[in-house]
Design a protein around this nucleic acid. Structure first.
Length: 594
RNA sequence: GGGGUCGUAGUUCAGCUGGUUAGAACGCUGGCCUGUCACGCCAGAGGUCGCGAGUUCGAGUCUCGUCGGCCCCGCCA
């Protein structure tokens, strides 16, 4: 670089800088070599500026410029001048001007990049991930990370202004039962013992409330050793927070303000609170899921009562054995072909349905369907009324156990919407889901498990049910759902030891085990624990939705593949026997050998 | 653990019922070019068809296995 100092970035060179001498540093985005005249689009983090190399401006620089190639790193000194009339490029912000180069310094050369980084061309993700440093140079990726930064910044500003302390909690902590699989870290100085990387700072943040911090937040990495998805990484980032002396309304209000601030400051969008709210029960009944996408209709409608009396045996049986029959009215979609219906049926079956009954409503309102003959005229009318069905519509039925019907029709609803482009883009539709069940029966383990986590407070009016009907107890938990994606979840916590013990009882966690695993929290609860509650946000998911991407990998600098590997650093990797020995670990390659 | 899908030049892809020399575009290399901006024109290089077996006179193409990417189910308090 010599004595050169960067004076501008490649975005801020405008007509205001005309005639001034500037020094730019960046990457050669594209070179157009006309022999006698060379144009280089110089790119840095902020944008692109056209640099002109002409022999009459500087002969040496012009000659050197012939050797420039894609992604060379250069420093350029020159005068800003207006482009000749008719030569402006309205597509870029700096398109009215250009820099006439007096001095060119090649700061570094570059091999030809393995993929083009100019366009939004689809390059396979394994190549992108292997050369992530090149992928991240692409303006789209840069923008994503910039947005992520600004979202974090706004979170810090907003919460600091509201009196929150940013406090760090340990990454090396202890493994806890319940919940996801832990990532374990062996302890060298404690042979045979292991730390676990945190799945969330849940216990620590509650302890911080007991410690009198009153308001805490942290933008924190969390780890879960489970299989990956487009919106799930083994390590992910969460905005974690907790407040003392609050009820549900306080947390919800604060978060709505936070979300509003984030959207207005970063996207200049007004998402005005209060957000919609649904109880868990209502969400399940109407949308078949606890994270409904509210951007379109196609709601589920219960027709169990009609179905129980009709002539279709499958429906009767389901209705009389505690199952449900529900239907979706796919408005105006009666033109779906036989083949479409076969594909949809397969889709339903892959989700656990035995089949997918459908009814097309003909011009005259009559039913065209394999199951039409099992319904009397009255029954047909009753179903049409419930679903506001008219000619041109097609009705889909799900009859099974509750969970199966919810899942199948819930997914079918999304699939139909996708097929017909019913989901508006660039819309942000928030909904709070409240009154979750506290517990959920786990068939495999034959016991109740916490739906949220075991520190979630039960609703006061349901406390009495804890012994005789645990499944009916509702919790003081709330999730925030955006466009069908769960972006946040939290609850008012248990702050009384006797209630905590009761919940452990319902979870069938023996006293000794509770003491062994969470003893420190239980004890802390006896030393003046204030009422408290909080929430945690999936930062990756939130930014993904804001950036309009469909995987969180696009808003994480160095994500892992579905096999939880980093293709760039090639992690995980084998370690030496010496390293293992130091940790008192003895490899056992049984799985390989057999 | 299960289902689906993909893997051909540096990149994105085409490649028919198996057929002899595996193509295109972009990129790359060299040459020409003083107003381009997806510069243009001319010439050229570039391939273990993911890997391994099998079927066949013959395999990019068919079969089996295997590795890897992605999507989904299970799992993710």
């Amino acid at each position: 670089m010599g004595e050169l100092r960067r004076t501008h970035d490649c975005y801020s060179i405008t007509e205001e800088s005309l005639e001034s001498e500037v020094t730019l540093m960046g990457w050669v985005h594209r070179r157009r070599d006309h022999g006698g005249l060379i144009f280089v689009d110089l790119r840095d983090r902020e944008g692109i500026t056209q640099v002109v190399f002409a022999p009459e401006v500087n002969k040496e620089a012009h000659e050197k410029a012939h050797s420039l190639r894609s992604e060379y790193v250069i420093a350029v000194r020159g005068k800003v001048r207006r482009r000749p009339e008719g030569m402006e490029n309205p597509k870029i912000k700096t398109g009215m001007v250009e820099v006439a180069c007096n001095e060119l310094r090649i700061l570094n050369t570059s091999k030809t990049p393995p993929f083009p980084l100019d366009e939004e061309k689809d390059v396979s993700e394994n190549v992108r991930l292997k050369y992530r440093y090149i992928d991240l140079r692409r303006p789209v990726m840069l923008e994503n990370l910039k947005l992520r930064h600004r979202v974090c910044q706004e979170m810090r500003n907003y919460l600091s202004a509201k009196g929150f302390f940013e406090i760090e909690t340990p990454m090396l902590t202890r493994s806890t039962p319940e919940g996801a699989r832990d990532y374990l870290v062996p302890s060298r100085v404690n042979p045979g013992k292991f730390y676990a990387l945190p799945q969330s700072p849940q216990l620590y943040k509650q302890i911080l409330m007991i410690a009198g911090m009153e308001r805490y937040f942290q933008i924190v990495r969390c780890f879960r050793d489970e299989d990956l998805r487009a919106d799930r990484q083994p390590e992910f980032t969460q905005l974690d927070m907790e407040m003392s002396f609050v009820k549900e309304e306080d947390v919800i209000e604060l978060i709505e303000g936070l979300i509003q601030a984030i959207f207005s400051k970063t996207l200049n969008l007004d998402v005005r609170p209060p957000f919609k709210r649904l109880t868990y029960r209502e969400a399940m009944e109407r949308f078949g899921t606890d994270r409904p996408d509210m951007r379109f209709g196609l709601e589920l409608v219960d027709i169990t009562d009609v179905a129980s009396k009709c002539g279709l045996k499958v429906f009767n049986t389901v209705a009389s054995t505690g199952g449900v029959v529900k239907a979706i009215n796919a408005k105006g979609m009666a033109d779906l072909s036989r083949k479409d219906l076969d594909v949809l049926t397969e889709f339903a079956q892959s989700l656990g349905a035995k089949g997918l009954a459908w009814v097309k409503i003909k011009e005259d309102g009559a039913w065209q369907s394999p199951i039409a003959k099992f319904f009397s005229e009255d029954e047909q009318r009753a179903i049409m009324d419930k679903l506001s069905a008219a000619s041109g519509d097609i009705l889909f039925f799900g009859a099974d156990k509750r969970e199966t019907v919810f899942k199948v029709l819930g997914e079918l609803r999304l699939e139909l919407a996708r097929r017909r482009n019913l989901i508006p883009e660039d819309t942000f539709d928030f909904v709070w889901i409240t009154e979750f069940p506290l517990l959920e029966y786990d068939e495999d383990e034959g016991r109740f498990k916490a739906l949220h986590h075991p520190f979630t407070a039960p609703m006061t009016e349901d406390l009495g049910l804890l012994d005789e009907n645990p499944a009916a107890v509702r919790s003081r938990a709330y999730d925030l759902v955006l466009n069908g994606v769960e972006i946040g979840g939290g609850s008012i916590r248990i702050h009384q030891q006797n209630v905590q013990k009761k919940v452990f009882g319902a979870l069938n966690i023996p006293e000794e085990e509770a003491q062994e695993k969470f003893g420190f929290l239980l004890e802390a609860l006896t030393y003046g624990a204030p009422p408290h509650g909080g929430i945690a946000f999936g930062l990756d998911r939130l930014v993904m939705l804001m950036a309009g991407r469909d995987t969180i990998r696009d808003v994480i600098a160095f994500p892992k593949t579905q096999k939880a590997q980093c293709l760039m650093a090639r992690a995980p990797a084998e370690v030496s026997m010496a390293q293992l020995a130091e940790l008192y670990l003895k490899p056992d390659w049984k799985k390989d050998q057999q």
